[in-house]
């Protein structure tokens, strides 16, 4: 799928090749996440997917989001997952019955959904090319822009976010503590 698109493009080969390789790896890893029989392996494959997403962010000139992705997901969320797995005493190893009885119904649903999304995307953006992302390392304008946006027009959502995080932290403590 992507190979076809790559061939049709050819604006920046290196970038497209990079995208393709990472994308292929991500899709493979994502499939492993939902198909492996080992819970810990699933978590580790998820790391690959999330790292790939971070790499795609870098390609899309969103360095700050990429760094946040690495720190929040790979740094924090994955640790949470691993602790969750350990604390729920999942078997470290293969486990039968990780899937539902009716798991097969997921396949048609996913395929139909993908067909629909792909059709919508190609119908709308099929021929659009995007401007060369400026991979500026030193003069990182986008980070400054993000800071300005977050602290000026999106200040209220930002504050809202802080309350959500606080509530989530307290909620998680209340739920998980033993008393």
């Amino acid at each position: 799928m992507n190979a076809v698109l790559l061939a049709a493009d050819g604006v920046n080969v290196a970038q497209n090749i990079g995208f393709g390789i990472i994308a292929a790896g991500m899709i493979f890893a994502a499939l492993c996440v939902v198909s492996t029989k080992n819970v810990v392996h699933a978590a580790l494959w998820l790391v690959v997917v999330l790292g790939g997403v971070a790499a795609q962010y870098v390609l899309a000139a969103a360095e700050f989001v990429a760094v946040s992705q690495v720190m929040v997901y790979i740094g924090a969320v994955m640790v949470l997952f691993l602790f969750g797995i350990m604390l729920t005493r999942a078997k470290i190893g293969e486990e039968s019955g990780l899937n539902n009885k009716g798991w097969a119904i997921g396949i048609p649903v996913a395929v139909v959904l993908f067909g629909l999304l792909a059709w919508a995307v190609l119908d709308t953006y099929g021929d659009d090319t995007i401007a060369e992302p400026q991979l500026t390392g030193a003069n990182n304008e986008s980070t400054v822009d993000i800071a300005d946006r977050v602290l000026s027009p999106y200040l209220a959502p930002f504050f809202g976010m802080t309350f959500v995080l606080l509530a989530a932290a307290i909620g998680a403590i209340v739920l998980a503590r033993k008393d």
């Binding site: 539902n100 009716g102 798991w103 119904i105 997921g106 048609p108 649903v109 996913a110 139909v112 959904l113 629909l116 059709w119 919508a120």
Partner: peptide, 19 residues
């Protein structure tokens, strides 16, 4: 899981109909 399947399936079907 079943609810999820129904939800997404119904969403997909509805979207197809819309399209």
């Amino acid at each position: 899981n079943q609810y999820g399947g129904l939800l997404f399936g119904a969403a997909a079907v509805a979207a197809i109909v819309l399209v």
